[in-house]
């Protein structure tokens, strides 16, 4: 009896506010429910069928996928390079703290700061570019650069977190491995690929998994920095879902269908990555 009593409060919380909504969402996605309407009907898969024709949903999916793919490498590499450098130099803990600091900010604070920095007319970033002779751009309003600006902002935001993760991982690699490699005449570059990368693989995979799952939910940066613009160039799935459910006619049924499409995608990715993770850690 005892273990169940210990588990009860947490599981109740979890079941009521996490599991139940998940399943309830599936049910809602089969209805034409709308906020403020007392009654609704089951419409089968009509919401899903409509999604097949919703070009803005397709654009959002494409943007989300683009963001996920394009941001993974910088999110993986920038903190790793920093971690390798920090691991060699001095003042490691001080530097680690400095780089970590942006991660303590909320996405809104990050967005507002960068919005002001990147202001196309009166922002400092463009000003310094112009003084360097580089033509100024409206980074966030240019369809060519808007998503990249969001990626850069995100990299700035999360680098500190992954830096700490990497540093911890690097410290777990025994020093004598490198020394032995050096005795065998391996240079820094070779020991990076033959020692660091393989031993860091679980950490690298953790970073990728965490980042990819987070990427599918991109919303805050877009809400503050571009509002999904210019046009629909940075509109994401979650933003489309949010607006469908809470701004335009409060179409709960349609939004729930979007949520489940998103969930299905994340599920497939998670399973794939989990396979990958398991396959490689058992060496």
């Amino acid at each position: 009896m005892t273990p169940y009593l210990f588990l009860a409060p947490g599981l109740l919380l979890f079941a009521a506010f996490r599991l139940y909504p998940l399943l309830e969402g599936l049910r809602l996605s089969l209805t034409n429910a709308r906020l403020g309407r007392a009654s609704y009907q089951y419409v089968g898969l009509a919401n899903y069928a409509r999604l097949a024709d919703d070009t803005r949903f397709h654009v959002s999916l494409g943007n989300t996928a683009f963001y996920t793919v394009a941001s993974t490498l910088p999110v993986l590499a920038v903190p790793l390079l920093l971690a390798l450098a920090l691991n060699r130099g001095r003042l490691r803990n001080v530097l680690r703290s400095l780089f970590f600091f942006p991660f303590t900010l909320s996405v809104v604070t990050v967005g507002l700061a960068w919005l002001w920095l990147l202001d196309p007319v009166v922002g400092p970033f463009n000003y310094y570019l112009r003084t360097l002779g580089v033509p100024a751009r409206s980074w966030l309003a240019d369809p060519q650069t808007a998503m990249w600006a969001i990626i850069a902002t995100t990299v700035w935001w999360v680098t500190g977190y992954y830096l700490v993760v990497y540093l911890a991982g690097l410290q777990d690699i025994p020093r004598d491995l490198y020394e032995a490699a050096a005795l065998d005449g391996a240079g820094g570059w070779r020991s990076f690929w033959t020692i660091t990368v393989p031993l860091l693989r679980p950490v690298l995979l953790f970073v990728v998994v965490t980042h990819v799952i987070g990427s599918f939910q991109l919303f805050g940066q877009v809400f503050v920095l571009t509002g999904g613009g210019p046009g629909d160039a940075t509109r994401t799935v979650v933003q489309h879902l949010y607006e469908t459910a809470f701004q335009n006619f409060f179409q709960f049924g349609a939004a729930s269908a979007m949520a489940w499409v998103l969930f299905a995608i994340v599920l497939v990715f998670s399973v794939l990555q989990f396979r990958l993770l398991r396959g490689h850690t058992e060496f």
């Binding site: 202001d119 196309p120 007319v121 009166v122 409206s138 966030l140 309003a141 240019d142 571009t226 613009g229 210019p230």
Partner: peptide, 11 residues
Amino acid sequence: APPANANCRDA
């Protein structure tokens, strides 16, 4: 005209 996201008032 300024870019699509310019703050015209500030400008």
